[in-house]
């Protein structure tokens, strides 16, 4: 059972990692935590649904299109709603993110709130047996997508100027602007990328949770837990935190009590912030006063 729990927890953790990665990208680049990220995940999945089921497009084309559409949505949210209040307090930014997410959810509810929508079956059915361990093809696909996303992000942030730009913009937007960086465009792009990654997450989660307006509500706080555990703002930390959370939930559920699965994430957040605010791989999260 232990081997199975570790493997299944790893697969589940990959989904948390993807959510945490997307939020980390936005946070690293813009210092804003997107409290509406879960609803972007939902929006991405509904995009695919509309394209495949209602417009009759091919799945892979629809998925690609959904990622592009969500990139545009993220870009537009930053340009239209975040930028005008960027000078305001953190609070307004957090509220704006919540309100935008709430609007997306409300909109989805108006359109599809009363029925259940089957998500197109795209992942191969069946199971894969590796000794005593059972896997489904979707587990492998999710792990593959997360690994690929991490590789791309690592390359972009470490081997291209984007990493330095992000660092500069994060530390001082004004300073970055002075040395010729188009901070506005950079912010918009990063919001776009964060939203595009949300779409990716939605496409991977939807076959599991299926489509409904609240489908991603619980992934948000798990994404936070993953970020906190790994270290806020650290890309490898987000992945590590996500994987540990996924495995931890299953171990707690199987060996302690299934009642504790739901609060593993909350306890991790509270304990990590109290005991080691920098998480496993991050920088200190506290201010000195």
């Amino acid at each position: 059972m232990l081997a199975q729990l570790l493997v299944s927890g790893f697969a589940q953790g990959c989904l948390y990692a993807l959510v945490a990665l997307a939020m980390t990208v936005v946070y690293r680049a813009t210092t804003v935590v997107n409290f509406g990220h879960g609803d972007l995940v939902m929006a991405g999945a509904f995009c695919v649904y509309v394209l495949v089921v209602l417009a009759g497009a091919d799945f892979f084309l629809s998925a690609a299109l959904a990622v592009v559409l969500l990139f545009a949505l993220g870009w537009a949210i930053q340009a239209g709603l975040i930028r005008p209040i960027l000078a305001g307090p953190h609070l307004s930014l957090a509220m704006m993110a919540i309100a935008v997410g709430y609007a997306l959810r409300g909109g989805a509810r108006v359109l599809w709130g009363r029925e259940v929508l089957p998500f197109p079956k795209v992942f191969p059915q069946g199971i894969i047996k590796l000794g005593p361990v059972i896997l489904s093809p979707s587990d492998l696909i999710v792990a593959g997508v997360v690994a690929a996303t991490l590789a791309v992000l690592a390359f972009v942030f470490l081997a291209t100027p984007v990493g330095k730009t992000a660092q500069a913009v994060f530390q001082s937007p004004r300073g970055a602007a002075l040395v010729g960086i188009d901070v506005g465009a950079f912010h918009r792009t990063m919001w776009g990328i964060g939203a595009a990654m949300a779409a990716l997450g939605g496409i991977l989660i939807a076959p599991i949770t299926l489509l409904y307006p609240d489908m991603a509500a619980s992934t948000l706080i798990r994404g936070f837990a993953a970020m906190t555990l790994g270290g806020f703002g650290s890309l490898p930390g987000a992945v590590l935190g996500g994987l540990l959370l996924g495995v931890g939930e299953l171990l707690v559920g199987a060996y302690v009590s299934t009642k504790l699965i739901d609060i593993t994430a909350y306890l991790i957040i509270i304990l990590v912030l109290l005991l080691r605010p920098s998480g496993l791989l991050g920088r200190p999260a506290v201010v000195r006063v």
Binding site: Q4, L15, T209, G253, S257, T258, D262
Partner: peptide, 20 residues
């Protein structure tokens, strides 16, 4: 007897316990 909270996207722990 096992529990599963609302909003969970995985039932591995529950299923394995029931199976055992």
């Amino acid at each position: 007897e096992v529990t599963m909270e609302r909003g969970q996207t995985d039932a591995t722990a529950q299923v394995l316990k029931l199976k055992e």
